[in-house]
Amino acid sequence: MPDPEDRLGYDEDRSPQWHGGLSFGLLILRLVLGGTLGAHGLQKVFGLFGGPGIGEFSRILGDQGYTSQLSTLSWVGGITEIAGGALLILGLFTPAAAAALLAVTANAVYLKYQAGFFLGEGNGFEYHLVLAGMALALLFTGPGGISVDTNTPWRRRPVPYGIVGLVLAAGVVVAVTLLFRR
């Protein structure tokens, strides 16, 4: 008897079947999330698209309560957004990329929580919550059929990999908060 949990869309030889709407929808989700966060990473690291660059981003992190290793934290955050975004666009190592981007966006939600939900109230967390939700969704759905990850274990059985990714992302958020904030 087949396990209905997350094996849907595969025949007996475990090769993926085409689900046009689902695969296309997941491609769009990956392109939007990966492109958005990749561009944000380019702003933070290289100052592209009118971004702050690494020095100013380090200063911003200091203003948000981070106290140690600001330059290292800036580089890690920016490179995570660039690399995670690129991997999502390709649909390559999707669970790792989605977990990394979930950690970055969940940390942003945590930082902006006190400002309120809506951006109009100041610097709210609604935008970051949407990005975190997109990363979480991709963590548990997998990349879809239009991806480099087509014949990988995490494409065939995304739920166990999603759980591992969620635990890792949560661990990173807690570690960054405890180690680098006052």
Results as ranks from 00 to 15, higher is better:
D3N: 14
V164M: 01
G65D: 02
A115P: 05
I60R: 13
S71K: 15
I146H: 05
L31H: 09
R155T: 09
L22H: 04
V76I: 15
H128E: 14
G171M: 09
G91S: 04
A83Y: 06
L70S: 08
G35P: 07
F140A: 04
D6W: 01
A98L: 12
P16W: 00
R156Y: 03
A137I: 13
G124A: 04
S74R: 03
A170C: 06
G9Y: 03
H19P: 03
G78P: 11
L119Q: 14
K44Q: 12
G145H: 05
Y110P: 01
G38H: 10
P4H: 00
L131H: 07
Y10I: 01
M134P: 09
N107C: 12
F140G: 13
R59V: 13
T177K: 11
Y10H: 02
G62E: 03
P52C: 01
V172G: 07
A106R: 14
G120W: 11
L33E: 02
A99I: 08
F140H: 06
Q43T: 07
F24I: 06
Y66H: 11
E126H: 11
G84W: 05
A135K: 13
G120V: 13
R181F: 00
G122P: 14
W18I: 11
L119C: 08
Q69V: 10
G165F: 00
G20H: 05
L138Q: 09
P4Q: 02
I54E: 15
L29D: 05
F57K: 10
V174Y: 07
S74C: 10
A135L: 15
G21Q: 05
R156H: 02
D6K: 02
A83C: 10
R30Q: 00
T152P: 07
L139W: 01
G53S: 11
A115D: 10
L42N: 08
N123Q: 11
F24H: 00
A99P: 05
A100H: 07
V176S: 04
A103L: 00
Q17K: 12
Q69P: 07
F117L: 15
